[in-house]
Every structure is written in C-alpha cells, then in structure tokens.
Design a protein around this nucleic acid. Structure first.
Length: 515
RNA sequence: GGUCCCAUCGUCUAGCCCGGUCAGGACGCCAGGUUUUCAUCCUGGUAACAGGGGUUCAAAUCCCCUUGGGACUACCA
C-alpha cells in the first residue's frame, strides 16, 4: 500500500437486521483496515425514509459488536459502550446512539444539507439538471419504450425546458429531482481489485436521479459525497454495486475528485444459487446468535466464503486476529459462494470443543435456563459444580449452544426405565437382574477418591470382563433411561454415587418377582 | 429484452497469473476402527476441471464460441 493511510467503510442501510452477507462485507472491510493499519468506518445510509425500521440501527451496532468487528469512527450505542471523546447527539431518532470520529455526522439523514449543496454545484456546472416528471409520467414513458422494444431509460425531456421554465417551476414549488447528465458515447474503464479490468459504455447508463423530490439524496450521490468527504481509499462492497460503479466514477469525475479503489465482493448464495435470502433459511446475524452459534465460528466460516489464505494453506480454523494477519484482497474469489449450513455446524462444534468448560458454562447458561425441563429440575441439579460436569460431557457432542442440555436426563430426579430396553441381546430377566446387581455392588464399593471419569471407566471394564455388553448396556439404560446417552462411566460421574445407586435399584426392582 | 459479472467434487475451495505432479484439502455422505448405544475421535472410500473449437510436443491453466448461472436495469439501497 501507499503511504496514504487506508480508510474503508461499511455502509449498511437500517432496513432491518444485519444480513449475513452484510456481516461478510463488514468483515472484509474490517480485515483490510486492520491488516494495513488503517481505519474502519461505519456509516449509516438511511436516505430512504420509507424503508426506515425503528431500532434497526441499534440492532446493526449490536450485531457488529457481537461479531467482534470494532470500528474506529461512526455511531456507537452508548448502552453498550463507554467510549471516550464521544459527543451526544441532538437527534432524538437514535436516542442511545453517540458518535465517534472527526468526519461526522456518520448518519446520512443528518447530512442532507451537504448533499443538496453538492447536487446544486453539479447543476450550476451543467453536469446535472432538474427534472419535474411525476411517477406516472415516468411509468408511462418506460412502458412506451418497452412496447417499442427499446431499453427503458430517461429520455431527457426535462432538458427541453428553458431556463425560465425551470426557474418558474421551482419558484412555484413544483416537486423536482436532480438528475446526473451522463455523457454519451464514452467508455468508462476501471480496474476492480477483485475482478480486474472492467469497461462499460456510457450509452447504457441512465441519467441517474441524485436528489429525490423529498430533498433526500439517492444512494449514488450520498455514497460518493460521503466516501470523498470521509477520505475513503478503498470501497469494498457487494457485487450488486458493480453495474452502478460507472455512475459513481462519473460523479467523482464531475466533482473533480480523486476516485477510490474499488473491490466488488461476490454474493452469498442460497443452496439453489440465487442471492442469499430469507425464505430459504436464516439470514440475519441475530438468528445465528440465537441459534447458538458462537461469533468466532460464524466469523471464521463467513471469512472462508469467497476468500482463502492461499499458498496451499489448508488450515480452516482462524481467530479474528489470525485472519487479520493473513487477509489479502488477492485471495478473494470472483464466483459466488453457497452458504452451507452443515459446514457451519461442524465449525461451530469445533469452537465449542475447544472452549474451556468455564467458558462453555458462561455462554450456554442462558440457553439452558430457558428450557422447561431445566426450570423444573431439582435445585441440586442447578449448582454450578453440577452443571460444569454436565457440560464437560455435552461439550464433545454439542454443535450449537441452543442444543445444550439435550441429555436432560441429568436434570430429572426420576427416570422412567423401560424394562425391555434394559435387555442386551437375548438375555433373560434373571441375567439382567444379576448383571445389574453385580454392577450395583461394584459401584457401591467405590470410594469418592475413585470418582473420576477415567477411574470409573477402568473399574467398569474390569468388572464386566469379557461380556461387556451384558453389564454395560443395562447399567447405562438404568442410569439414563434412554436408548442413546453418554457412556455409563460418564453418567455415574455426573449423577454421583447416591443418585446412581438409586437409579440402579429402581431398575433392579423392575425384575422382582411380582406374581 | 439490454448491460455487466461468473463457471474445478453435492457444498466451501487449492491449483490458473508464470501451460508439463494419479487435479490436493475441508464439510457432507458411505465403510471400518476405538472404551460393544449415540456423539466425539482415528483410518479408508465416494466424488469435479460445463460443452465445443483453437494455440501448443503438452491445456483445469492461454484465446474464441456456445451453454448455464447470477447481478443490475427505481425519486431502494
């Protein structure tokens, strides 16, 4: 990179929740900034008042924070952060939001005067013009063009208006927009950092509206003005912006501004290869958080969608810091990537397995606390000491935190044991009862010193000799009551001696002669 | 329809720029193994250069065409 410090931004629209594709865009910007020791800026593009969703900004900030992507400049939620050098906002729209940084405001709805000024400048220069067409007129125009098999495009009818007509309409208060006057017959050429050489003919570019009749700017104007004013050096954004990049380039040129570098990221896809969308699964970061994915796993997974560390590096698990170390735009793929839930589950499981039990306890306790069976569990099953033992076992089989407590057998004082389930192969009632009685004796002879997973296993194996299934199967069933459960030594370990013996006794009693 | 982008196992991908290793890894799936269930873990297996033309002694790699997929085509971003 040059001596000029890198400045990148993530510029979401507060129309809902943070989309998983947005997370990836934010991540790549973050990684690029950190890799090059530059700044990562967050800007809110809320110029469409009809699509504004209450609470969306706060949600966005939250999701980004959860993911661990810290930003240097932009709005922050003061309910979450204690940032120095922050100024409280006047606006009451974002009541809990404060801003950090010298180039603010970072919320576009608070910059509208700016955009108006720049739009006017373009009109004065003759590079943009006023248009007074109504929505109905424009629709009619497009329909006519479509019928005539022409490409729908603004026909510049407003350019036929005389200067005095324009003046009169404006002073009469006729609603109007400002449109960019796109030069004809030119080729716009640029080098995209991930796609390479791109050329587009200006004849295919419509006279884009820059300022809407409600006085708000469109994305195109606001984006370019802000990127320039905020000193953005690299625009890293989704591929959906590729076709409109020439418009943005035209804008930079019209203002006489140095243009930033562009890097267009491929899209995230549904399994059917269409653009990742709701309907085919979760798309908001919040959904994944609530389903029990760790932020580290989600970030790790998303980073590897359309990017790889290259050089034959087959590593798959990367911390955020490790990603920062390795990140390079040259490792970004041009083709779109399907979001594969199976691999995410696997990766999440890897992260869970590598946590300390204490950490697992901290981040899974709230998931567990919501479960009905846990709520109704006895108090001795809710002590941290007990839960830590349960989690030690669950950890190796857990793929998502929301699934914690699946072996809820641990939380019930009573297990209902099906007599037939206790039967290993074709063993007789008597054989089962004898096996259980034997195991009971073995367990009751154990001292507390021997109450470790390893020792318990050793003892059980020793006590069951050649015919392990005959002993271990009924023992396990009597302890868990379930066909599928952790191994007997682990059940014993978690349940404790007293509770274990109680359960074994209950099973043995099933075979007492009842006639 | 028009413009632009893209194309290696089912999925994520390495290899492509600087042509020459049985096209490598991971997820999934299948089989086997371990402390005879489930899970974990280990081992092995399955499976791809979209098609067609060139250029070349040699093409997944370079060029062209076709096909397929996607995005954009708003006073939404």
């Amino acid at each position: 990179m040059s001596r000029q410090s890198v400045r990148v931004r993530f510029a979401p629209s507060p129309t809902g929740f943070l989309h998983i594709g947005g997370l990836r865009t934010a991540l790549f910007n973050y990684l690029f900034a950190r890799r090059h020791g530059g700044q990562f800026i967050l800007r809110i593009e809320d110029t469409d008042r009809t699509r504004f969703v209450d609470g969306a900004v706060e949600n966005l900030l939250n999701a980004l924070s959860w993911a661990g992507l810290s930003w240097d400049e932009g709005p922050k939620d003061n309910r979450i952060f204690n940032v120095k050098n922050v100024s409280h906002r006047q606006s009451d729209v974002y009541s809990s939001v404060v801003e950090v940084g010298e180039k603010g405001p970072y919320i576009q709805s608070e910059r509208i005067e700016l955009y108006r000024r720049y739009a006017d400048e373009l009109v004065q220069n003759g590079q943009a013009y006023y248009a007074f067409d109504t929505a109905e007129e424009l629709t009619a125009m497009r329909e006519a063009q479509t019928v005539a098999k022409q490409v729908p495009m603004y026909d510049r009818r407003a350019l036929n208006l005389s200067a005095s007509d324009v003046q009169k309409k404006i002073s009469d208060g006729v609603p109007h927009v400002v449109r960019l006057k796109v030069p004809r017959g030119e080729r716009i050429v640029f080098e995209d950092l991930v796609r390479g050489h791109i050329e587009i003919d200006t004849d295919t570019i419509d006279d884009q509206v820059l300022l809407k009749s409600d006085g708000f700017p469109t994305y195109h104007l606001a984006n370019v003005v802000d990127d320039y004013l905020m000193g953005i050096t690299h625009v890293i954004r989704g591929e959906e912006w590729l076709p409109s990049t020439p418009k943005h380039l035209l804008l930079y040129r019209a203002f006489g501004w140095k243009e930033p570098h562009f890097a267009h990221l491929s899209l995230l896809l549904n399994p059917d290869r269409s653009k990742l969308s709701k309907r085919q699964g979760d798309v908001s970061v919040e959904d994944y958080c609530l389903s029990g994915y760790t932020s580290e796993a989600l970030v790790n997974f998303v980073a590897l969608l359309g990017w790889n560390p290259g050089a034959g590096n087959t590593q798959e698990i990367f911390s955020l810091d490790a990603l920062v170390e390795l990140f390079d735009l040259s490792g970004i793929n041009k083709a779109g990537a399907v979001f594969d839930r199976d691999k995410l589950d696997w990766m999440n499981g890897q992260y869970i397995k590598n946590m300390t039990v204490e950490d697992l306890y901290d981040c899974s306790i709230e998931f567990l606390s919501e479960k009905d069976f846990f709520l109704s569990a006895s108090s001795e099953c809710k002590t941290k000491e007990y839960l830590l033992r349960v989690l030690t076992l669950e950890q190796e089989r857990l793929e998502r935190l929301a699934l914690v407590g699946d072996s809820h057998v641990f939380f019930f004082r009573t297990v209902s044991v099906n007599k037939d389930l206790l039967r290993w192969k074709n063993n007789s009632d008597q054989e089962i009862q004898e096996a259980l009685t034997h195991m009971r004796m073995v367990v009751s002879n154990l001292s507390l010193v021997d109450w470790t997973r390893e020792k318990l296993l050793e003892v059980l194996l020793g006590a069951s000799g050649e015919k392990r299934g005959d002993f271990l199967w009924p023992l396990r069933i009597s302890l868990s009551g379930e066909k599928k459960s952790p191994p007997p030594q682990d059940l014993l370990w978690v349940l404790g001696k007293e509770e274990s013996l109680r359960r074994i006794d209950m099973a043995i009693a099933l075979f007492d002669v009842e006639k």
